[in-house]
Design a protein around this nucleic acid. Structure first.
Length: 227
DNA sequence: ATGACGATTTACT
DNA sequence: GTAAATCGTCATA
């Protein structure tokens, strides 16, 4: 499938985040494709968004990629041991990004298992849902770390996003897109309560809270909204 | 130079 | 449900 181009990424983060659902994240590692379908994302809206690393336009070597062109990778290290991957949205100078929170792994599962294995959890014990069902898990499975921050995903030969066979924006023909509150941002006050998390409701590879939230742009016959 | 803190995961009670 | 693991980043001095 064709990779996304600049104009595909050049949207406000809260429009890009639901759009990416159903698309495939591809990591080429030593000639091997490691890939999965994006099933959960979160939007971070930049200067106004207290939950964002770029809150108040904080611009440092770490956050710099978010100020770059849409489609730039932003990978950060946190809790002394985990990496998380985002894709810059909006336009140059506007530090918005979409956090990739979960994938349904589709290619290179054996390599992913090897990356995720530990003495306590050997390869044989790992199930598909243990590989990419969280922002740090998928980075470990796909071997994504800070060396991959600041990449142009429209040109990189290591990391990119491919379009799905069909447009999944509305969720038609697939699981319905739901929204909910972002995870792990309780410190963000009112911004923590905004529905900026997007996921395929009930999908087994979503990180947590597989259900809940409310339908996004409900199609005909959708459930009534309510928090 | 120093200290506080994570856009998390895992194991354990 | 709670807690530990573990260190780069950032603000303050």
């Amino acid at each position: 499938m064709p990779r996304l181009r600049r104009r595909d990424y050049a949207l406000p983060a809260d429009e890009l985040a639901p759009r990416l659902l159903g698309h495939t994240l591809v990591r080429l590692l030593d000639g091997t494709r490691l890939a999965g379908v994006i099933v959960e994302t979160e939007a971070y809206l930049g200067p106004e968004d207290r939950a964002a690393h770029s809150y108040n336009n904080r611009r440092t070597p770490r956050t710099e990629p978010m100020f770059g062109p849409a489609g730039t990778s932003y990978v950060y290290f946190t809790y002394g041991m985990h990496h998380c991957m985002n894709i810059a949205a909006a336009e140059v100078g506007v530090p918005q990004a979409v956090l990739i929170r979960a994938l349904e792994p589709t290619e290179g599962l054996d390599t992913m298992r090897a990356h995720r294995a530990t003495p306590r959890r050997p390869v044989a014990a790992l199930r598909p849902a243990d590989l990419c069902s969280g922002p740090a898990k998928l980075c470990q499975a796909l071997a994504i770390d800070r060396s991959l921050t600041g990449l142009d995903l429209t040109a990189s030969d290591q990391l990119w996003v491919e379009a799905p066979a069909r447009d999944t924006t509305t969720g038609s023909g697939f699981l319905q897109i739901h929204t909910g509150t972002r995870i792990g941002v309780g410190y963000a006050g009112a911004w923590a309560r905004r529905h900026l998390r997007y996921f395929l409701c009930g999908h087994p590879h979503v990180s947590s809270r597989r259900t809940g939230g409310r339908p996004w742009k409900p199609q005909g016959g959708g459930n009534p909204a309510g928090p």
